[in-house]
Design a protein around this nucleic acid. Sequence first.
DNA 1: CGATATTGCAA
DNA 2: TATTGCAATATCG
Length: 873
Amino acid sequence: MEKNDRLFLLDGNSLLHRAFYALPKTLQTSEGEYTNAVFGFTKMLLRLIEEEDPDALAVAFDLAAPTFRHKEYEEYKAQRKKTPDELSPQFDLIKEVLTAFKIPVLQLEGYEGDDIIGTLAQAGAQEGYQVTITTGDRDALQLVTEDIEIMYTKRGITNIVKYDLDKVREDYELEPKKLIDMKGLMGDKSDNIPGVDGIGEKTSTKLLHQFDSLEEVLDNIDQVSGKKRKERLREQGDRARMSKKLATIKLDVPIDYDLEEFTLVEPDQDKLVEVFSKLEFNTLLKEFGGYDTLSFSEDFELITDYSQLDKLINNLKEEKQIGFKFNFAETKLYQQKANGLTIVYNDQEAYYIDMKELEAKEVVKALKDYFEDEEVKKLSLDSKQNLLYLKELGVEVEGLDFDPLLAGYLLRPSNKKQDLEDLLTEYLKVELSEVDDEVEQETQLVRSLFKLKEKLIKDLKDKGLLELFVDVELPLIPVLVELELNGIAVDEDELERLSSKLQEKLDSICTKVYELSGEEFNLNSPKQLGEILFEKLGLPVIKRTKTGYSTSASVLEELEGKHEIIPLVLEYRQYQKLKSTYVDPLADLINHQTDRIHTSFNQMVTATGRLSSTEPNLQNIPIRTEEGREIRKVFVAEEGKKLLAVDYSQVELRVLAHISQDENLIEAYINNEDIHTKTAAEVFGVEAENVTYEQRRRAKAINFGIAYGISPWGLAKDIDVSNKEAEDYIDQYFNRYPKVKEYMDEKIQDAKDQGYVKTILNRRRYLPEINSSNYHRRSFAERMAINTPIQGSAADIMKLAMLAASTTLKERGLESEILLQVHDELVFEVPTEELEEVQQIMKEKMESVIELDVPLIVDLNVGKNWRDMEEVE
DNA sequence: CGATATTGCAA
DNA sequence: TATTGCAATATCG
């Protein structure tokens, strides 16, 4: 050891607790094992090593066994809550991490970590180390000397304060040693150390200025001021002595360690990788070189002329499996451009076709037959984008066989983003080498597809997801490509008319609002509006948000009648929403190559298996209010065609009837009853023919709520009744539909037992928070467990419908096209002469994509635009 | 400029 | 303190 080497001693228990409370419990492995404390501790340890550069380091832990303090005083730490269940197992985990770092773990039966640290700190200081103790426990401050300092984690794990001798003197106005006497006098609530009644921080500090120690105080009680205080010190002197003893950190623990062994050394690489993989600390794994680099050949053949291309195509003839990927320069539809095309065959043989040199049209034409050959299995990355490009150039890919991102989505649908890097690290424990050359990078990506296919297909198979992947999700990609390229025609003039009409209304409302409020302000700012309403106009505050007053529609509605400004604000909000979210952005998204709007359907976003739609989102175009509904007028069918909307009637409730097997619900659907009226009759105990409008409305809300994992509170808010009434309705509902209740309990149990719930097509959703000790998180997971099989199965059914619809239109050689999917509805554009046939065929096909124990029914609506639709049949 | 909060639209 | 999404706007660091 060199002189002044730095020795760090960490209080494992204290720091792990700190990390546990500082980091969200969402940090878990995919199995649901909690890792937040371990992660936080590890990060802190690494930062400590990085920033403080210790020469030696060790971590001390408490053991579960009682210490001498418990023997001394039964009540010691008796009020302490038991370590949370989510934390306990993390003690063993952090010890594994430390072992991998080759950092000594110190623990000794009968002693606390503090005592071990105290003993070793003193020993270290004597041997000439500069000692730093890291802990979240202020007790350690008594150990501070010239050579021993404390790093105290004030809050969380990042806020650290260093206490050296000066700092302690400054903060406590006492020598560190005297902090023990202080504890003896004032006690310590957190450790259940009693001290002397009526003496707190102020008095004990004062006394210890007057006397050198607790003992001196007790020996000279006469000189203490205050009658009551003297009395208590006399009565409770022994208690004080005991308290001091409890608070004293031991400096003579019989622990046998050679400080030389604490010297920081290189970690055990293999063990570190092993433990980080187990804990799924992917960022740390990367940092510690835990991943092998995927070593592919750097070789590839660059194709820059047509003779080389011909040669490649000739070689490909024999190949039944290829990986391909375009290198895109522009992905706007009907203007797509690619810089190149990578093709890999025979597992690793790579070609890059330079499409800056070669004409894209020519390249694609030359490869058309190959891409359209169903016998040739294609692997691609971001297949939808690649297929969009090819289809734009007239090539309809057949034989699409694998996309790692899509497979990854089915394996972990709740992941925030689906990307290749995660898949490589998570499933293959490798990463791609960093390559400067763009082209080489592309070839590496495509090469990796083969490795991923092998592993991911196996995982899909193990989890019963392969059929969903092969029969539904993968074939859906070309269907989504159709929808996106089709787009929907837009009446641009109508859009402009709407925009100026809305602007006029906004201007006039705005003027009136300013008049009423006596000043101009930004009506779009909830903050400014809140100040006007609740401060200037003095309206009652209904609800607050994190940052101020809530001005949401529900709040404003309650204020209606209190001030004439309110209805104006509500009206302003409505028009502002329509204009800024729908009308104006839609105009910008018209593709002038096609004069249509082409949304993008994302297949890998939702946790339940639904699609989502962006740029623009065509799945949330207004319909409920007349003003909002106007927007739908701009979505039109071309000349000579009609829009046909086919929607599944109450598909989610039918799914619920099927999976819950509730006889009452099934029977209602089999008998084609009005389900909301039926529910009203059941819940309110009246005959179906006597159900009032209001009762039916409420029953409808109950039926919706059920599918979401209803709470009395939520229902009460929705239909404006008391919590008690809402609770009664729900009870009565479960009474009449008992299997629905059973279904809910079962799904929650499934999630607890298996960690996930499933849909009709076996789609999974993992719900690790189902076991959370946090009520909110747990309840949320429970509602997901209830809702996901319902919403997800409905999504499954719709995906089957899309496949069936697409296939049927092709088989029949019809010109009709699918334009949109809105969760339970498909919108088609149909030449008038095909209308009859398409209506009839879609009804038949969509109602029979799957056989449930209740009938599936679709309703058909036809119109010239998406607003003025009329029901047919 | 990016992240976050609030608000509100759909199924 | 009801499920799943996307997006506009304001505001803050």
